[in-house]
């Protein structure tokens, strides 16, 4: 069991990881070819994962409908739309009129509508939580307001210097902070990658 659950996955990760690293830094034809082959496998594995996800969604919602049909309206709707979209995609194709209808008149409007609700939630959250209770909060408040006004033409009319200050905040203050975060994140990323390659990151292999 240990061999299948831990040793083989670690060995696969080690070989694949080392090949990718060597491929990036050196021009060795055989290694470059293997690395490209492995990257193509990733695409295939990801497609299988996508299929697995779809099957899982079906299983979860079918179970819900079977257990409590009267309380599973959302699951029933999900299953219907799921099956209709897949059937049309498979039979008529993604460029077909019915599929495009689903995309243009159902997927895009609902996706945009849900996302646009953020404007309302963020607005009320900012109104309730954005209070200058101390110096740090006051700095954040003033900076946030300048950037919000500097990003829109009407804000520019109200405070003419807002765009200039916004550019300075974004290109000086923000870049300095972000650069630190990105470099620290990258170092952490390298460390975690090394731990995964040599098998120290146990959670990656499904071991707690």
């Amino acid at each position: 069991m240990h061999l299948a659950k831990r040793t083989i996955p670690v060995a696969i990760a080690f070989v694949c990881g080392i090949i990718q690293v060597v491929d990036y830094f050196f021009k060795i034809e055989s290694v470059n070819t293997w690395a490209q082959e492995i990257r193509s496998w990733v695409s295939i594995v990801a497609i299988f994962a996508l299929g697995l996800g779809a099957v899982n969604v079906l299983r979860v919602h079918l179970k819900k409908v079977r257990q409590a049909p009267s309380e599973s309206l959302n699951s029933i709707l999900l299953l219907i739309t799921f099956l209709v979209t897949i059937s049309i995609g498979l039979t008529a194709g993604q460029s077909s009129k019915p599929y495009k209808f689903i995309f243009d008149y159902i997927i895009v409007p609902t996706g945009s509508a849900i996302f646009s609700l953020l404007a309302f939630y963020i607005g009320t959250a900012a109104y309730r939580a954005f209070r200058a209770k101390n110096a740090e909060a006051a700095i954040l408040l003033v900076t946030g307001c300048i950037v919000m006004l500097g990003k829109v033409p009407l804000g520019e009319k109200i405070i003419p210097f807002a765009p200039k200050w916004t550019t300075w905040i974004m290109e000086v203050l923000n870049v300095g902070g972000q650069r630190g975060v990105m470099i620290a994140g990258a170092i952490g990323f390298v460390a975690v990658s090394l731990r995964i390659i040599i098998g120290l990151e146990r959670r990656t292999y499904g071991v707690d």
């Binding site: 404007a119 607005g123 109104y127 309730r128 209070r131 408040l141 307001c145 009407l154 804000g155 109200i158």
Partner: peptide, 16 residues
């Protein structure tokens, strides 16, 4: 977007 941003800023200032 302009009016939306100004409205949020106005509400934040009002709250403060």
């Amino acid at each position: 977007q302009s009016i939306g941003h100004v409205l949020i800023v106005a509400f934040v200032l009002l709250g403060n």
